[in-house]
Design a protein around this nucleic acid. Structure first.
Length: 291
DNA sequence: TGCCAGGGTCTTT
DNA sequence: AAAGACCATGGC
């Protein structure tokens, strides 16, 4: 089946981006992306690739234990953020010189969302203050510990464990994976929140204001302003959300603004205020400045 | 080698 | 309110 985006979309640009990540929950090969998921206990493996039609993508289900096309297409649309009116961001970006090069080079690039709230919470904790390569390795160890995968054509496609399963871990279990003691505590704390509903996707989506949701998230131990904004940006899709203090964003601003050193908090706050409802996409494109 | 990495909490000034 | 210590470890 073919899905179409609300405005510009370039699967090739997305693929190049995804290829450079090392997320164990999807696999890139030969221009196609494969992912296994579980919906209501039914596992499914699907493949996403370039479509013949412009601004769209092709979805093919390779293995299905009863999830159905509808659920998968909804998932993919969410994952690639196909519903966002990207042209509106581009219209804004034309008034900010920082984006001149990147919006041209990466035209049709959209946010790669985290559909699964447990996934984004774990990532926003593991990803705190360590290099990305190591962070992806830690996530891989955590995921593979639970042994959920679909095997297809001799390859394993891993599935994120549920929050309930994460709760069966101890801090010591995660220490053996080289996850720090603090982060292990944070992960358990967040898994508990997903289980009891205080961090469920439904609940986070029920906030009608960005600041209300942010206040709720930062009240959770282990979730600071950076992590809260990662969750709000990439899962709940509040378009104002910017991971304040993000090292990549600061490095990018240093380049685009020709600064001598990294910008301070005040400097960034002013820019975020200017970006307004385009903050999330502005951040994504700023990250592309770094290559 | 030493600093940095897509930070956060807890303790001290 | 703001600044510092500490966490942990790999990458470059």
């Amino acid at each position: 089946m073919i899905l179409r985006a609300n405005g510009p979309f370039d699967f090739g640009v997305m693929y190049d981006f995804m290829e450079r990540q090392d997320d164990c929950l999807y696999q890139t090969r030969g221009g196609k992306v494969r992912r296994a998921e579980i919906f209501g206990g039914r596992r499914v493996l699907f493949e996403v690739s370039e479509s013949a039609e412009p601004d769209g993508l092709e979805v093919e289900i390779l293995h299905d234990e009863g999830a159905g096309e509808c659920v998968v297409s909804e998932y993919v649309a969410d994952w690639f953020d196909l519903d966002y009116d990207l042209e509106r961001f581009y219209a804004f970006a034309r008034r900010d010189g920082r984006f001149e090069a990147v919006t041209g080079e990466y035209y049709g690039f959209r946010m790669l969302a985290y559909v699964n709230v447990t996934d984004v919470l774990v990532w926003s904790i593991i990803g705190q203050q360590i290099n990305m390569k190591f962070a992806f390795e830690l996530k891989r160890r955590l995921v593979e510990y639970f042994g959920h995968f679909i095997e297809y054509e001799g390859e394993k496609y891993w599935i994120m464990p549920s929050a309930g399963e994460l709760l069966t871990l101890t801090v010591e279990d995660m220490r053996e994976m080289q996850i720090s003691r603090r982060k292990a505590e944070y992960i358990l704390n967040c898994a508990e929140g997903v289980e009891n509903g205080s961090l469920s996707k439904e609940y986070l989506q029920s906030f009608d204001s960005y600041s209300g949701a942010k206040t709720h998230l930062t009240g959770v131990r282990g979730i600071g302003p950076w992590s809260a904004n990662v969750v709000l940006m990439r899962t709940v899709k509040f378009r104002h959300a910017v991971p304040v203090g993000d090292a990549g964003l600061r490095n990018a601003l240093k380049i685009t603004d020709g600064l001598d050193g990294k910008p301070g908090a005040e400097y960034i706050e002013d820019i975020i205020s200017w970006w307004g409802q385009f903050g999330a996409y502005a951040t994504l494109y700023m990250w592309r400045v770094l290559g």
